[in-house]
């Protein structure tokens, strides 16, 4: 099926060869910079003084480019809503051939009960430490969603709280925007992290509002991913 050589794949190959030539000229003439460009140098020099974060990537995502992150989280929310809408309109036919879930084994259920709290704790660790070590809200949120995924695999029959997920999602989004507005009132601008004291550099409770904002992002992203996974998994009796 895939090996048949048609005019269609020939045209595709010609187009891709043209694109490949463009890529080749890009890669052949590339030499890595020896110095940081001005934006990057500004971030490298001023992150510690202005935001108090050790991880420069975190400082860029949460503070310097915080508005973009708010937009990104909103895009994810829209995605989750559209997936739920599209799949909600096309319910699977009842009693089709081979419908229904296989029961998951005893091992998976017991293992889930043991592992789920640890996975959730690890996700929380990753997003609370986002300003000190690699990691942060998006990674931690994905880890939380993996925990929910394990729960879905172990007990496919149980419909756990969709209301809880959407409540976590909307409350954390609301508080995120409120913290941003508090930045306008109390500090230099929207999503400014200096509404809380910067603390000692390198401590867990430092960098102003960055741990708080990243925790909220983590909860929101985790809830959104869980909702996407749940609406794709949900088939019968939904």
């Amino acid at each position: 099926m895939t090996t048949k050589f048609t005019t269609r794949s020939f045209v595709a190959l010609v187009l891709l060869a043209l694109l490949g030539v463009a890529f080749w000229t890009l890669a052949a003439g590339y030499t890595p910079d020896a110095e940081l460009n001005r934006t990057a140098a500004y971030y490298a020099e001023n992150t510690a003084r202005e935001t108090g974060a050790q991880n420069i990537v975190t400082a860029i995502i949460v503070t310097y480019r915080g508005l973009d992150t708010l937009g990104e989280v909103t895009v994810l929310f829209l995605t989750a809503a559209i997936v739920a809408l599209v799949l909600g309109q096309s319910k699977a036919p009842r009693g089709g051939s081979g419908s229904g879930f296989l029961p998951s084994g005893e091992l998976l259920q017991t293992g889930t009960k043991m592992l789920l709290p640890i996975i959730m704790l690890f996700g929380a660790y990753v997003f609370v430490n986002g300003h000190l070590t690699p990691g942060g809200g998006f990674q931690g949120g994905a880890i939380l969603a993996s925990g929910i995924l394990l729960l879905l695999l172990a007990e496919p029959k149980r419909r756990f709280g969709h209301a809880l997920i959407s409540r976590v999602e909307s409350v954390s989004g609301l508080v995120y925007v409120l913290i941003g507005i508090a930045g306008i009132v109390l500090a230099g601008g929207f999503l400014d992290n200096r509404i809380l004291p910067l603390g000692t550099f390198g401590a867990l409770l430092s960098a102003g509002a960055i741990p708080l904002i990243y925790t909220l992002i983590g909860l929101k992203v985790g809830a959104e991913f869980s909702s996407i996974l749940e609406s794709l998994e949900e088939t019968e009796d939904a």
């Binding site: 690699p134 990674q139 994905a142 993996s146």
Partner: peptide
């Protein structure tokens, strides 16, 4: 940072 994100989201 990117490595963690890719491992958790892209491949998981």
């Amino acid at each position: 940072d990117v490595a963690m994100t890719e491992a958790a989201i892209g491949s998981g």
